[in-house]
């Protein structure tokens, strides 16, 4: 986002590997992750208001697929798809995966990413602002949500996962877990 710390892009090999994962599997994981996050952060729906019924195209430009999201608590839908086939969305939010994860985790400021042209928005600007502000207030931690998916295996999975996370963040330059005042970012 700054001249000295550009937003990292997903390495081409990683993007190639991600492209090989069947959409059905991606949909299954995204569906469980989104449902769990919605359950644990239900206050964000109040902030979304009627924009919860909007259809968002979340477009990580360095991934081989985009994500269609309808954050309606009564009919939550999420689906991975080829971005060339994406249609019928109300709002599109596009940028490198690292920028999108950094927004969720409080590492980056949305307006600053817009100023620097790292983030592109199109369509219903009200819906984009509502989603951004709701997510920023929700203080979501996707690492915590991934661990929650492990269910009874969490006790086994958590210690190595927590040890590997800081290393993965250092190597990738991507905020993989929520930024807290104690650890900051950059």
């Amino acid at each position: 986002m700054s001249e000295t710390m550009p937003i990292p892009r997903l390495p081409p090999l990683a993007a190639l590997l991600a492209g090989g994962v069947p959409f059905a599997l991606v949909d299954h994981v995204l569906g469980r992750l989104t449902a769990g996050t919605a359950r644990r952060h239900d206050a964000l729906f109040a902030r979304l208001g009627d924009k919860a019924r909007a259809i968002f195209l979340i477009d990580p430009t360095d991934l081989p697929f985009a994500i269609m999201l309808r954050p309606d608590p009564s009919d939550l839908r999420v689906e991975a798809l080829d971005r060339r086939r994406a249609s019928g969305w109300d709002a599109r939010i596009a940028g490198p995966l690292a920028a999108l994860l950094g927004l969720v985790h409080g590492a980056y400021d949305g307006d600053a990413l817009f100023f620097s042209r790292d983030l592109v928005v199109e369509g219903d600007t009200e819906a984009v602002l509502a989603l951004r502000n709701a997510i920023d207030d929700a203080e979501i931690d996707l690492a915590e949500e991934v661990l929650a998916l492990a269910g009874p295996l969490r006790r086994l999975a958590e210690p190595p996962f927590r040890r590997l996370l800081p290393l993965a963040e250092r190597l990738s330059g991507v905020a993989l877990t929520r930024i807290t005042p104690e650890r900051g970012w950059r």
Partner: peptide, 9 residues
């Protein structure tokens, strides 16, 4: 006030 907690911090 329209900015994120990253900006505020």
């Amino acid at each position: 006030r329209q900015r994120s907690r990253a900006y505020v911090a």
